[in-house]
Design a protein around this nucleic acid. Structure first.
Lengths: 168, 168
DNA sequence: CCGTGTTTGATATAGTGGATAACAATTATC
DNA sequence: GATAATTGTTATCCACTATATCAAACACGG
């Protein structure tokens, strides 16, 4: 999100005329601040933005990180299984994998059982990058969330979001 | 999200061979289920999907609904102010407004003070549609969230998300 | 009043994510 | 062995996001 897209809190530098009191009056959010979907999306953008910033030295997006995590936890799976688990459509998963493979973070190996499918595995470098990424995520990203919400707050939030994601 | 994109819970109809026990073993989410950003995004998609479904009779997207809400709460504002408040870039706000205006839900009026800017206002039809949309959102969408989380759970969730959106 | 700079809405354009159709290769099924 | 289904892939489309640029209108200092 560009600077000019930052919401609400942007005090436009113009019109110093409205000296003390008025200050051009901020736009009222009104019932929008009670719309869960609205706040949810706003929070999600903020969290992704921070994730990107924290993992910037490793050049990993949230989606790429989630793929590496899944490959680590599920060796020997094919593209369809990993893509489905992440809610990514197979066609769109191809270029994502291309990118990871071109950076030598994972490899596609033709399966011996079913020569149609590609078995996915992390490379050595993939394991190393994932390990460093995890450290950054825990020590910087999630740590900041813990600081803001408290450990129990974070747990409660995670539980409610999981409930929505699974049961809603 | 298409059917084929539905995460995890998709038991592929193939291979009845794995009769009772094995069942091809589900892919393990692993540490992904503790990643707040991941669950946050998943929950957000679910909530938007439900919103879209609940307001389908009025053909309003979350973004369009939020614009109508803001125009109602802030009559007499121009495009830049409304767009900034919603975190929408001015260029992208133009077509959004075009769509609403072509449906006679709002109007652009040249300001008398500053003939560069367009004052935005809801039309009569806009007010009516917004009123009906609000009813649908409250009675169907938010009601379902209340049912899932409980009134206090929903409040707590809203509070934490707002905190993230504003202070993170 | 004039000229410089800024703001507003708008256009064009590019990048990204998500979605569908179709295809060759391979496998499953009957 | 013929037909159907699956896997990875390509092409393509749509929505959303982002940047640069423009004309019109305004602000302001000289």
């Amino acid at each position: 999100m560009a600077d000019s897209a930052k919401p609400v809190s942007r005090r436009e530098g113009r019109k110093e005329a409205a000296v003390a009191a008025d200050e051009t009056q901020a736009v009222q959010l009104g019932e929008l601040s009670d719309l869960l979907g609205y706040v949810l999306k706003r929070a999600q953008l903020k969290v992704f933005e921070d994730f990107l910033h924290c993992v910037a030295p490793l050049q990993l997006t949230p989606a790429q990180f989630s793929v590496l995590l899944l490959l680590d936890a599920n060796p020997g799976r094919n593209q369809t299984e990993i893509a489905n688990t992440l809610g990514i459509l197979r066609p769109n998963f191809v270029s994502l994998l291309d990118s990871l493979e071109s950076r030598d973070l994972c490899t596609r190996v033709r399966s011996a059982n079913d020569r149609r499918s590609h078995i996915l595995m992390l490379t050595e470098k993939g394991h190393a990058v994932l390990a460093r990424a995890k450290k950054l995520v825990v020590s910087k990203h999630e740590a900041r969330l813990n600081e803001l919400l408290g450990p129990d707050g974070r747990e409660a939030l995670l539980a409610m979001l999981t409930k929505i994601a699974e049961e809603f």
